[in-house]
Structure formats: C-alpha cells, structure tokens
Amino acid sequence: YTIGVGSTGNLALSIGTISAKLGFTVEVHMSADAKQWKKDLLRQKGAKVFEYKGDFSEAITQGRSITMDDPLGYFVDDEDSKALFLGYSVAALELKRQLDEEGITVDKDHPLFVYLPCGVGGSPGGITFGLKEVFGDHVHCLFVEPTHSPSVMLGVMTGEHEKVSVQDFGLDNLTEADGLAVGRPSRFATEISQYLVSGFYTMEDDEMYRLLALLADSENVYVEPSAASGLSGPLRLQESGILEENGWEDKMGRAVHLTWSTGGSLVPEQDRKKFYQKGKSLLTPVTES
C-alpha cells in the first residue's frame, strides 16, 4: 500500500515519517521552495521524495494524479481532504485541556486571540474550526501569510477562493517561509474559513527572522521562520483598528494571546544556527564607519 502527499515541507515530514514507520510505501511530492534538509530527512526515514521545479500547486497536482492512479494508493490531500481538516481541528481539544490545567479562563470577558501561520489554508482552517466549536464566539483567529504568498487572504477577500493565485496579482510566491509558500488556496478549507476567521495580516521574511532570534534569546525556543510569523500578532491587532470596530479594546487586559508555531524541533543544528544568525544580524543596527 502507498501513501502519497504533496507538501512544501511540514505536512510531508509528519505524513512521510509516520507512514514509513508503519510500513507503507511513501511518496512525497515537494515543491522547489521546500528546504533541502526536509527532503534529506524524509529520505533518511524511508520516504521516496519527488521534487518539482514549480510551486506547491504543481507538486500537489502531480502527486495526487500519480497516487490516485495506483489502486493501492491513498493521497493525503491538503487542498481537499475533510479527514485531514478534521484532524487539524482536534488540536482545539488539546488546547482546551492545556488551558484548563493552567487555570486559564476563556469566556466573554476573557477572549482568546490565536495567530495562525497560513499556507494553503487547511491547517489554520481546521484549527479555527475546532476552536470555534470549543470556545464559540469567545475565540478570535487571525491568519498570517508572507507578503509574497497571501493566497488565502486574496481568495477570501475576492470571494474567488481557489480560482485566483498570488501570481494573478503580480506576486512571485517566493518566501523563506517554505511551509507558507502557497500560491493558490484550498477551495474546501477557504470556503469554511471565510465565515470563521477574524482577520489576516502579512509579514516580510526579514521580520520572521527577527522574531525567530528574539524568541530564541528570550525563551530559548528555536523555531523555523514560518513558525515565528504569529509572534507579532498582538501588536498587529493593536495597530489594526479591529479592536475598536468590534468593541474588544476594554477586554484586552484580560485577553489570552496564543501564537501557533508550526515547526522547528527537527531543524538540523547547522540550519538552526543559520536562521538564528540571520535574525540577529537583522536586529543589529547598521552603523556607518
């Protein structure tokens, strides 16, 4: 039996690793922007990695076609899988358990704000769906995308969903946040998320690196660039005007803010140091000699 998956990185790591461990044949279809260390690690785990010159859309389209042609193949479809979407949503139950253990209340007077890195939209969409089921109107989710790859935001704002790509707006879909390098959003996830998401914001790659370094210095937590994108969420919220529009400003002193970090623990030490050093260099003021 064969498990296939198309990914820019992190979904491939999870599906590829566990599927190989369980004894399946694993075929991972990865876009050109996927990091080399992720491809190498997958091959070490026993997965077959197919590389494409195009972006995520090409990788997932080709991967779906190849896998579905195999009568013993199953494709984990990040663009159009209800099972995967609901799998993401289960994270809300885990979060509720953690909040309860910490004695953290989420209700009308103690709202929860969650900042979710967003690629094709399946993961943040599924998590948001779960959170809304658990906390209702007391949770507010904001999606974060790279300035060069805001596919879900554009899909929702235009109402065209998967019918538009970032290239249609003159953007190149090139970003260091490889897990978020998606030019066209998921139809299934975006059609649901448009009714649940509270807002979007975009971020430059350099800002992700700066936040990555600040997190390492302050908390000794090392993440990859895409996983740092939600860290500026509370500041963006304050600057956006959305607090006044929704009557939230008087509750901010009692609010809970949560950044969803999507990866970093598997990053090789050499790459981790490069990420950190780049972030530190961007934090250091440039002085003229």
Rank of each mutant, 00 (worst) to 15 (best):
T284M: 14
A34G: 03
T158C: 07
G170R: 10
M252R: 04
K96G: 08
F56E: 00
E204R: 07
G23C: 03
T61C: 12
A47V: 13
S261H: 11
Q44K: 15
W37A: 04
F169M: 11
G247N: 09
G264Y: 07
K163P: 00
E207I: 07
L112R: 06
I15W: 00
K39C: 12
Q36R: 14
G4H: 01
S151K: 03
K45P: 00
A91N: 13
S165F: 00
Y276F: 11
S149N: 05
K45L: 15
S57K: 15
L282N: 04
M203A: 08
K96W: 01
R254H: 14
C118V: 11
A177Q: 14
D109S: 10
G103D: 05
L142K: 05
G170W: 03
S198L: 01
V49T: 10
V106C: 03
V76L: 15
K53N: 06
L42D: 01
G23Q: 05
D70K: 13
G233I: 08
L86D: 07
D109V: 05
A213Q: 04
S151H: 09
Q167R: 14
P225R: 13
K35P: 04
H110G: 10
D109I: 07
P268Y: 04
M153D: 12
G23A: 05
K39E: 03
L231C: 08
E207R: 14
H257S: 07
R97F: 05
V152S: 05
L112D: 06
M68I: 07
E244S: 08
S289H: 08
F75P: 07
F75H: 07
E51T: 15
A91I: 11
T175A: 08
V152E: 06
L72V: 03
Q277K: 12
G119L: 05
P117M: 06
L154Y: 12
T61V: 12
L211H: 04
D33N: 15
C141T: 09
F143T: 01
I242F: 08
K108M: 11
I60D: 05
E207P: 00
L142M: 13
V28Q: 00
H148N: 11
T17Y: 08
G73N: 10
L41W: 04
D70R: 15
S89T: 01
H110Q: 13
A34Y: 03
E207D: 12
L41F: 09
L116I: 14
A12I: 12
W260M: 15
L42C: 02
L11S: 03
H140T: 06
K274Y: 02
A20C: 09
A227K: 03
K21D: 13
F135P: 04
E79Q: 15
C118N: 02
L180S: 07
D69M: 15
L11H: 10
S226E: 09
E249F: 08
G247F: 05
Y195C: 00
G126T: 08
G122F: 08
L99C: 05
E269N: 06
